[in-house]
């Protein structure tokens, strides 16, 4: 019952947004492309200021967090303590003997405390990938834990040699050109010149502060899919568009990229959930 209510709430919001956009479009038939882009950005800004449907997932996540025994999970601040957890991740965990970011840690804890096998964890984490209007419990857990760090500043401890090593590896992978189309992350996310995909302006690692703004709002609610996008799903989608093989969530590659991105974003205030087109 509760799920039906939540789903209809999301649909309602999405429909309202779509209607608003349609009326804006209908009024301005003879606009230049630049004007249209400006209007879409205005719509996004209004959505950003108003209610964010991503918060519904946080409510769901609060229940799922208990359901999967994650209150035993230590995010680096003590068992079950989620306030400020995202701000200090990725970090080195002595119990797993690995550097882990938030989602990898959740996956590890699901194996330890919820009795899942690695295959089950992967299926659980990717249940909403490639879909839209999907209410996933995994997305909900990530959203709940992330939102508990709202207002805190990203503070990855790069003095730790293990984290620093992952940071350097992530940096090299960021600039590694691979695949049949010669892509690297820097193809789109580097340089002083502005790069766009359609109307969306892409952040650049070379323009100061932009990496932080991009990273600190994840998981991010996407209006066009009517569901949130977690960081690992973002990596997977980027790599699909780069014509690389299918990305594996909770892998060392994801941790290395997270270490590089969150390490670069040090000092930025976390504002979860973000909202995007």
């Amino acid at each position: 019952m509760r799920k039906i209510f939540l789903t209809s709430a999301v649909f309602g919001l999405a429909c309202a947004g779509l209607l608003g956009y349609q009326t804006v479009k209908a009024q301005d038939q003879e606009l230049s492309p630049e004007e249209e882009i400006r209007l879409v950005q205005e719509f996004n800004r209004m959505m950003a200021e108003g209610i964010n449907p991503g918060e519904i997932w946080a409510e769901m996540g609060k229940e799922a967090f208990k359901k999967y025994n994650l209150d035993k999970c230590d995010f680096g601040l003590g068992p079950g303590k989620v306030e400020g957890a995202l701000a200090q991740l990725p970090r080195y965990f002595p119990d797993a003997k690995k550097v882990m970011d938030l989602e990898t840690r959740i996956g590890w804890c699901l194996q330890q405390y919820a009795g899942m096998t690695p295959e089950q964890v992967k299926k659980f984490a990717t249940q909403c990938w490639g879909k839209s209007q999907c209410m996933g419990e995994y997305d909900a857990i990530v959203m709940y834990v992330s939102m508990a760090s709202n207002g805190q500043k990203v503070n990855v401890n790069l003095k730790n040699p293990q984290v620093k090593r992952m940071y350097e590896i992530g940096k090299q992978i960021y600039y590694a050109r691979l695949g049949p189309w010669d892509f690297n992350c820097a193809t789109c996310h580097a340089g002083q010149q502005e790069v766009r995909i359609r109307a969306t302006k892409l952040w650049s690692a070379d323009r100061p502060g932009e990496a932080g703004q991009a990273v600190s709002i994840f998981p991010k609610y996407l209006v066009r899919w009517a569901q949130p996008m977690t960081m690992h799903y973002r990596y997977a989608e980027c790599m699909r568009q780069m014509r690389w093989p299918t990305f594996e969530p909770h892998s060392d590659l994801a941790v290395a990229l997270s270490a590089f991105l969150y390490g670069t974003a040090n000092g930025t205030e976390i504002k979860v959930p973000g909202i995007g087109r």
Binding site: I169, Q172, I173, Y175, A176, R177, L178, G179, P180, D182, N184, R243, W244, P245, T246, F247, E248, S251, D252, L253, A254, A256
Partner: peptide
């Protein structure tokens, strides 16, 4: 680390081989 992050489908693993020009650009 790079190889650990992808599904090990032999159909697509050739995509992760870097050639010389890609190495220079990297």
């Amino acid at each position: 680390v790079l190889l650990s992050g992808f599904e090990q489908d032999p159909k697509f693993l050739w995509k992760l081989e870097q050639d010389e020009s890609q190495r220079i650009c990297s």
